[in-house]
Amino acid sequence: MQTPAANVHARLHNRQFVVASNAHGLSGTGTVFHYQVEDGAISSTYQGGRIRLGTQVGRVTGPDTIELLYQCLTLEGELLAGWSRGTVGADHAGRTTLRFVWGWLSGATGGGESNYVENTA
């Protein structure tokens, strides 16, 4: 029997993602996320674009859902932190997709929705 984390592990572990859309967020063109998943625990690092260095920690919450806390240091020296809840899916080409609802906890206000796609290049 597969655990809820099995699908997420198969779709995220040791894979990289790039921004597909993020109108109100900081990550954008050039930002690359690299995920690790172990026993339902998620971690990632990200950088590029306006992000000098970022990290995420989170957990699998269902067969295709996750929640994360994130923090980053921008090129301008801003230190920001936030939360997100996401859905793991696949596009028509079979690439893994991530769709998030997110908000800031520190360093900024507001929130939004963002979409990411597996970087297969």
Rank of each mutant, 00 (worst) to 15 (best):
M1Q: 08
Q2Y: 10
T3S: 05
P4V: 12
P4A: 05
A5S: 09
A5I: 06
A6T: 15
N7K: 14
H9C: 11
L12I: 15
Q16T: 15
F17I: 13
A20I: 12
S21G: 13
N22K: 07
N22I: 04
A23N: 13
H24L: 12
L26F: 15
S27G: 15
S27F: 13
G28I: 06
T29F: 09
T29G: 12
T31G: 06
F33Y: 11
F33L: 09
Y35Q: 07
V37G: 03
E38H: 15
I42N: 02
I42C: 01
S44W: 04
S44P: 03
Y46L: 00
Q47K: 02
G48P: 02
G48Y: 00
R50N: 02
R50S: 02
R50F: 04
R50H: 02
R50K: 04
I51V: 06
L53H: 09
T55M: 02
G58L: 01
R59N: 05
R59P: 01
R59F: 10
R59A: 07
V60E: 04
V60W: 00
T61K: 00
G62R: 00
G62H: 00
G62Y: 00
T65R: 00
T65E: 00
E67C: 01
Y70N: 01
Q71K: 08
Q71R: 11
L75R: 09
L75P: 03
L75F: 07
E78I: 13
E78G: 15
E78T: 13
L79C: 12
A81S: 14
G82R: 08
G82D: 05
R85W: 10
R85K: 10
R85E: 02
G86F: 04
T87K: 05
T87G: 01
V88C: 06
G89M: 06
G89N: 08
D91H: 15
H92S: 11
A93S: 15
A93V: 14
G94N: 12
R95T: 13
R95A: 14
T97V: 11
R99D: 05
F100W: 07
F100N: 01
